[in-house]
Simulated assay, not measured.
Amino acid sequence: MDEDKFQDDIRTYRERSWLQFRSKPYFHVYVLLAVSYLLILVFIIVGLSKVTSLSSELSEMNAEIPKRPSGLDDQLFPCGPDTRQWEYFNEKCYYFSLETAPWTRAKTRCEEKQSQLVIVNSMAEQNFLQSRTRNERYWMGLTDMDAEGVWRWLDGSDYTRGFQHWKAGEPNDDARNEDCAHLWGNGEWNDVYCTYLCYYICEKPLPGAATAHHRGA
C-alpha cells in the first residue's frame, strides 16, 4: 500500500506542477512565441514562392521584349565609346590628326590605328572632309610615287573613273617629285612632295559594318 500511495503522490505532484506551470504568465508568452515563429516561417515560404514566380515571369517578359541593336554609348559614339576622337559620316569613321607628318609616316600612323589614309569617293564625302579641315592641309591616300602621272588610291579604288576634286592646274608635279596628294586649305586637292609636313585623315568602316558586308557577300 505504501508503494501505491507513493505512486499516487508522484502523479499528484506532476499534475500540480503542470497546472502551476500553465497558470504562470510566461506560459502564454511561450505559446505566442511559438505561434509567431510558425507564422513567420509560413510567410517566408509564401514570399519565396512569390519571388520565384515573379522572377520567372520577368524572365519571360525580358525574352519577349526586343533588344535594342546598340546601347546609349553606341548611339552617342557610333565609332565606339573608346574612340571618341573619331568622327562618324555615312557608315565610316574619320580621324583628323593633331600632328603633322610626312606622307609615308602619316600612312603608317593610320595603319597603327587599324585604318588607312582617307579615300574620297563622292562630293558628299568631300564636303564633309573640307568642313572639318579648317583651312589646313591634310594628307589623303592618293599617290603616283610608283609611276609618274599614274595616280592610285591606297585601297585600289578606280582613280580614273572615280570622283576627283583637283585644284585648277593640278596635279602638275612642278618638277619636284610631287607624288602625294593632300586636301588644300579650301578642300581642293593638290599634289606636293611626300616629305612635306602635313596633317592627315584616317578612315575606317563603322565597327561591325565590314563584318556585316562580308557575311552578305
Rank of each mutant, 00 (worst) to 15 (best):
Y94H: 11
Y95S: 03
Y95Q: 05
F96G: 05
S97E: 12
L98D: 15
E99S: 13
T100I: 12
A101N: 11
A101G: 01
A101C: 01
A101E: 12
P102W: 05
P102M: 06
P102T: 11
W103F: 10
W103D: 02
T104G: 02
K107R: 14
K107Q: 14
K107A: 10
K107Y: 10
K107I: 00
T108V: 11
T108E: 14
R109L: 14
C110I: 09
C110Y: 09
E111C: 00
K113H: 08
K113R: 15
K113W: 01
K113M: 15
Q114E: 14
S115T: 09
Q116K: 12
Q116L: 10
L117R: 04
L117Q: 09
L117V: 04
I119V: 14
I119A: 07
I119D: 09
V120G: 02
V120N: 04
V120E: 03
V120F: 01
N121T: 13
S122W: 03
S122H: 05
S122M: 03
M123N: 11
M123I: 08
M123W: 05
M123L: 12
E125C: 00
E125Y: 02
Q126H: 15
Q126M: 13
Q126C: 00
N127L: 11
F128E: 11
F128I: 07
F128D: 12
F128C: 07
L129R: 05
L129T: 06
L129A: 06
L129V: 06
L129D: 05
Q130P: 00
Q130A: 00
Q130M: 12
Q130H: 06
S131D: 14
S131A: 15
S131I: 02
R132M: 14
T133A: 04
R134H: 12
R134Q: 14
N135S: 13
N135G: 02
E136Q: 15
E136M: 11
E136S: 13
R137K: 14
R137N: 11
R137F: 01
R137L: 04
Y138K: 03
Y138D: 01
Y138P: 01
W139T: 04
W139P: 04
W139N: 09
M140P: 01
M140T: 15
M140L: 15
M140D: 03
G141H: 07
L142H: 07
L142K: 10
L142I: 08
L142P: 05
L142F: 06
T143S: 15
T143G: 02
T143H: 13
D144G: 07
D144R: 08
D144A: 07
D144S: 11
M145D: 11
D146K: 15
D146E: 13
A147E: 15
E148H: 07
E148P: 01
G149R: 08
V150N: 14
V150G: 00
V150H: 12
W151S: 01
W151C: 02
W151R: 07
R152L: 03
W153M: 08
W153E: 08
D155C: 04
D155P: 02
D155E: 11
G156P: 03
G156E: 08
S157Y: 11
S157D: 13
S157Q: 12
S157L: 08
D158T: 04
D158K: 05
Y159S: 02
Y159N: 04
Y159Q: 02
Y159T: 03
Y159E: 09
T160G: 01
R161M: 10
R161T: 09
R161D: 13
G162T: 05
G162E: 07
F163M: 10
Q164E: 10
Q164R: 15
Q164I: 09
H165M: 10
K167P: 00
A168D: 14
A168H: 07
A168K: 11
